[in-house]
Design a protein around this nucleic acid. Sequence first.
DNA 1: GTAGGTTACGATCAGCGTAAGTATC
DNA 2: GATACTTACGCTGATCGTAACCTAC
Lengths: 296, 296
Amino acid sequence: MDAHRLLVFRQIARSGSIGAAARVLGWTQPAVSQHLRHLERQAGLPLVLRRPRGIQLTEAGRTLLGHADALATRLHAAADEMNALAQLEGGTVRLAAFPSAGATVVPAAMSLLAARHPALDVRLLQAEPPEALELVTVGEADLAVTFAHDGQPFTVPSGLVALPVGEDPVRLVLPNGHAQAEAAAVDLRSLAADRWIAGCERCTAHLERLCLAAGFTPDIRHGSDDYVVAQSLIAHGLGIGLLPQLALEAFHNPGVTAREVPGLRPRALHVVHHREAGRTPAVRAAVRAVRDAIAG
Amino acid sequence: MDAHRLLVFRQIARSGSIGAAARVLGWTQPAVSQHLRHLERQAGLPLVLRRPRGIQLTEAGRTLLGHADALATRLHAAADEMNALAQLEGGTVRLAAFPSAGATVVPAAMSLLAARHPALDVRLLQAEPPEALELVTVGEADLAVTFAHDGQPFTVPSGLVALPVGEDPVRLVLPNGHAQAEAAAVDLRSLAADRWIAGCERCTAHLERLCLAAGFTPDIRHGSDDYVVAQSLIAHGLGIGLLPQLALEAFHNPGVTAREVPGLRPRALHVVHHREAGRTPAVRAAVRAVRDAIAG
DNA sequence: GTAGGTTACGATCAGCGTAAGTATC
DNA sequence: GATACTTACGCTGATCGTAACCTAC
């Protein structure tokens, strides 16, 4: 059964004659006649009775018309739904973001998205960058918000693309009253003797790389990728650490002081999605919203 | 939305890759790829994510797949139903027949049809030939069983075709004990003085034409197109008449005697249907059954 | 190398239009 | 003659195949 012919047949049935159907379709009469002939040959049955003032459906024709109507309805529904998705009048976008972004810029971005496209369903999944990339790779998330420290090679799995969406300065975090808390200019070299609190795996690597460049190996006593825990450890004088600005925006323990370190490069923020997803309106809108939330 | 492309897309989704879909379809990979590209362009959305070992559906793709599945199901259902009608594994045929046929050959034909095609739904409508033709013309019956007396022009409305299916001898019906009831050979001329019982309009015209040819005008006292009534009138000695053999087979009043009249031509029996209906299997089967019932 | 996919382009065939013919009113 | 449809046939264009190329593993 050829669906196209079925739709032509439907027009014949609705118009009441082959010629009328041809006029509606913008075709000539023989073109429509041929379609009907093919359909009847394929069905092995006459579908219409040719009468002087038009056609009349046979039993087979009435039966087929029911199917043709259902077909047309389906096709329209499909087109409508595709249009809704293209116009962002529906659909879902799933964001995977690391915690400090999930507590700051991502909610802001989601709020922007909700305002711009109320019908869009936005969902947040919390995941550190490596897991976030995996979620996108396997299709459980549409967009990952990730970071990469300066000097760390930032590569994404093949098939994915990363777009820079901003930077996140890295601060030195000291307990209130620390010797360097009020110094004019902070230098890592002056902290070689301190004890350190490390963060996530990649943050720890970044810290070690920086200290090595400054001429010492940091004495890392504790580690936590939870910025609330890290600040608490620091506030209790158990060590010092580096924390990104986003983490300090998400939560700032009053017992700690954050200092800018000259020469300390910010970490880069990216959004990552499948290469093809860059043409999905919902993903594009989400990317714009994340970028605007960071810029705003 | 192009239905054909949708079905190709369905195959892609089911196969898990464009190449696999191409193999199933017996096409090359680029052919399938093009279909997908057109579909994505028309939808304005990516439908699949191209991954190293095949494709993965996007949200739009999953949505569209649902519609494509529904479409395929419909098309199969339509084909199945057309096939059932073509194979006489379903469907309806409506017969319009005049009373004496409806009481004799048509039930026999319906019985034959039921035996040959148990799933076929056969319906009988009783109607004198002119009305039967009208029923077929307007589509309320598929097949008319009609008769035409010898010498009567038998024409059917345009668009309809008539097929001869047999003959029905016309008998002279006399009350038992009538002078001619036991004669060696009956001659209409010997009945010029009798009173007559006429039948339906066309039968009356036929009777008058026969009598005129025999040299007299019949003294018609009563008329009834009901053969039971007519025979009752004759049995009571109120007149004599002509009745077709089918009417006598349907009902024979023991008070009447039927005689063959040499030279009296039988009436012709036809089945009539729309020209196109001649290719409808159910109608063809019904025609065969009527013909076989008359011949058997 | 193998597997999956795309782009570019040529060739073929489905399908529409034109023209001519049939039938009914 | 007007309307409805079919048949015959030519031409165009959608669509499929071939060839060349890209990417990932």
